[in-house]
Amino acid sequence: KLETFPLDVLVNTAAEDLPRGVDPSRKENHLSDEDFKAVFGMTRSAFANLPLWKQQNLKKEKGLF
């Protein structure tokens, strides 16, 4: 399991300012399950079932792209 970080560490943070080991294209993977659901309004599995373009739009909207 990946290390999780608080939302404010990941949202609207440039790649070079992210904690070590965080993939800038997969910031959402480093949210706790609770934060993930609070941000996206759905579970990880529901998010994973969305088309890629919709996932990317949601990530942009939430500052996690």
Rank of each mutant, 00 (worst) to 15 (best):
L52M: 13
D23Q: 04
Q56I: 15
A48Y: 14
P19C: 06
G63D: 06
D23H: 05
T4K: 09
E28D: 02
L10K: 01
N12A: 09
E16I: 10
E3G: 08
F36R: 00
F40K: 00
F5A: 02
L31A: 00
G21N: 07
A38W: 12
D23M: 02
G21T: 08
K54W: 12
K37M: 15
N49F: 10
K60W: 10
V39N: 02
E28W: 02
K62V: 15
N49V: 14
L52P: 10
S45W: 12
F5M: 05
A14D: 08
D33M: 06
N49T: 11
M42V: 07
K27H: 02
G63T: 01
A48M: 12
F47N: 00
A48F: 09
V9S: 08
L10P: 02
P6M: 04
F65D: 15
R20S: 15
L7I: 12
V39S: 06
S32L: 05
L52Q: 11
S25T: 15
V39P: 00
D33R: 05
L2W: 15
K1S: 11
E61M: 11
Q56N: 14
L58K: 06
W53N: 09
N29Q: 15
N12R: 05
A14F: 06
P6C: 05
L50T: 02
D17T: 07
F40T: 01
F47Q: 00
H30D: 03
A15M: 10
A15T: 13
V9T: 08
K59L: 06
V39R: 01
N29E: 14
K1C: 13
A46D: 13
L50H: 03
E3Y: 08
H30M: 03
V22P: 04
V9R: 10
K27E: 03
E28R: 00
G63R: 05
R20Q: 15
S25N: 14
E16D: 13
S32A: 07
D8A: 13
A15E: 15
H30T: 02
L7C: 06
T4I: 14
F65E: 13
G63V: 01
L52G: 09
H30E: 03
D23V: 03
S25F: 15
F40Q: 00
A15L: 10
K62P: 01
H30I: 02
A15H: 10
A46E: 14
P51E: 08
L58H: 05
T43P: 11
L52W: 12
N29S: 09
S32Q: 04
K1M: 13
A38F: 15
S32N: 10
V9P: 02
P6N: 06
L10I: 04
K60Q: 12
D17C: 14
N29A: 14
K60H: 09
E28A: 01
D23C: 08
Q56C: 11
K37E: 15
S45Q: 14
A46L: 10
N49R: 11
R44G: 02
V22G: 02
F36P: 00
V11Q: 12
T43F: 07
S32W: 01
K60A: 12
R26S: 09
A46H: 11
E28K: 01
A14I: 11
N49L: 13
Q56H: 11
R44K: 13
K54V: 12
P51I: 03
D8M: 08
A46Q: 14
P19H: 03
N12Q: 08
A38K: 13
S25R: 09
T43Y: 06
G21K: 05
T13R: 07
L31Q: 01
M42S: 02
E34Q: 12
Q56F: 09
V11P: 02
N49M: 13
L31Y: 01
V9C: 10
F65Q: 13
P19S: 01
P19M: 01
D17Y: 07
K1P: 13
D17M: 05
P6T: 07
P19G: 04
M42A: 01
L64V: 03
A48N: 11
G41P: 00
Q56P: 00
R44T: 04
K54S: 10
V11A: 11
A15I: 14
R20T: 15
P51M: 02
E61S: 12
A14K: 14
L50D: 00
H30A: 07
K37D: 13
Q55K: 07
D8F: 12
D17H: 08
F65A: 15
A46T: 13
D35K: 01
G41S: 10
K27A: 06
D33Y: 06
P24C: 06
L7F: 11
R20A: 15
E61T: 12
W53R: 09
L10C: 03
F40G: 00
G63S: 04
K27Y: 04
Q56R: 11
P24D: 06
G41K: 11
S45G: 12
E28L: 02
L50V: 04
L58D: 01
K1G: 13
V39T: 09
N12T: 07
F47L: 02
K27P: 07
S25D: 14
R26C: 11
G41F: 08
E28G: 01
V9D: 05
P51D: 07
K54M: 14
P24E: 06
D33P: 08
L7Q: 02
V39C: 14
T43R: 06
K62F: 11
F40L: 08
G41V: 05
K59T: 04
L58Y: 06
A14W: 06
P19Y: 03
Q55V: 03
N29Y: 12
L52T: 13
N57A: 15
D8T: 09
K1F: 10
P6R: 04
S45K: 11
S32P: 01
N29F: 09
L7Y: 15
E34Y: 09
T43A: 11
A38H: 11
R26T: 08
A48C: 10
L18P: 06
F65G: 15
V9E: 06
R44I: 05
T13K: 09
A46M: 12
D23W: 02
K37V: 15
L31P: 01
F65H: 15
F5K: 03
A46W: 08
K54T: 13
A14T: 11
F40C: 00
N29C: 10
V9I: 13
M42K: 01
F5I: 07
L52K: 12
R44C: 03
P24Y: 04
D8Y: 12
D23G: 02
E16M: 07
N57K: 13
H30G: 03
N29K: 10
P51V: 04
P24I: 07
V22C: 06
K37N: 14
L50I: 06
F40E: 00
E16T: 08
E61K: 09
L64W: 04
D35Q: 05
Q55I: 04
L52N: 12
F40I: 04
K37Y: 14
S45I: 13
W53Y: 14
K60S: 12
K54E: 12
K37P: 03
H30K: 02
D35R: 01
T13S: 13
K54F: 11
K62G: 07
F5E: 03
V11K: 09
L7A: 06
P6F: 03
N29W: 13
R26F: 11
